[in-house]
Write a protein that binds this DNA or RNA. Structure first.
Lengths: 147, 147
DNA sequence: ATAAATGCAAATCGTTTGCAACGGA
DNA sequence: TCCGTTGCAAACGATTTGCATTTAT
């Protein structure tokens, strides 16, 4: 999936269902695609305002929903600060260990895990587009402190 | 970790920091421990009321926080309907594939995945207590519909 | 007795929605 | 022109919090 095609994909998706490609949607699409990796609605909105562009929070939320529907972005997870989205052009990994004591987040990548997931998907006839593994527990430091 | 010890663990935890073991906390602890697996604050609250017991929503929320701190339960994930908690006596698996088209949730279990996670934790000096793998994508049905 | 906990209602915060004005097609 | 879209502000739903009252210790 090439970045330059985002606009085309979105445009086609909209036309197909009689929706309109407005200035606001264009701005939001653009900012969304230029995010490398994760983002949330509020910071996207602020980014738009800082850039002197125009789009209300309501339009940001509404447009993000459509972008999800057409597969250009995905809702990755919910946090206390809101929903985290992911631009599907960024091929990031979301595997991490979260310390439930100190909140420390240890990100990691495992080729073996990737392979395993592919195998699991194939078994279910599932076409994976992204994933997110969270292992909760105690990090090295907090393990020591515990006793 | 044996269920009968929940009260002891909680009681000790409270005493240690000068907090009190109130009727409400006792009720909430009890209902929490008797949940097999997942639950959310609202349904726990309703369960309490249906049982003719007494504890306000505020107390439920406040107590769940403490139970998290002392490790008897864990916040597993946030959804549109609220936070999902897990009673740590239930050793459930949280691995699933989520269809981003139809919302279908396919739960699965993989021994290989469990082993791999243990290995990854060991490498990081991390003591895992629970995990949650979400693979997003298109389920068999929606894959067909797509074209 | 004293500090902590409770219940309630009001406050927050992210997100959604109703509606009148606006603007692509 | 004809709907779809926008921005705003009000509505929402989950969670938190201020406060006067109750209660464990």
């Amino acid at each position: 999936m090439k970045k330059a095609h985002g606009k085309l994909i979105f445009g086609t998706f909209l036309k197909d269902r009689g929706l309109r490609f407005t200035k606001e949607r264009s701005v939001i699409l653009q900012k969304t695609l230029s995010c490398s990796g994760h983002f949330d609605p509020e910071s996207l909105y602020l980014q738009i305002r800082e850039a002197g562009l125009k789009a209300s929070r309501a339009s940001v939320y509404r447009t993000l929903s459509i972008l999800c529907e057409c597969g250009l972005i995905e809702r990755v997870k919910k946090t206390e600060r809101g929903t985290i989205y992911e631009n599907m052009f960024g091929h990031e990994h979301h595997d991490h260990m979260l310390c439930i004591q100190c909140g420390n987040l240890i990100e990691f990548y495992s080729e073996e895990l990737e392979r395993l997931q592919e195998a699991l998907c194939k078994k279910q006839g599932f076409q994976g587009t992204g994933h997110n593994l969270e292992i909760r527990g105690y990090c090295r430091k907090c393990r020591k402190k515990k006793r």
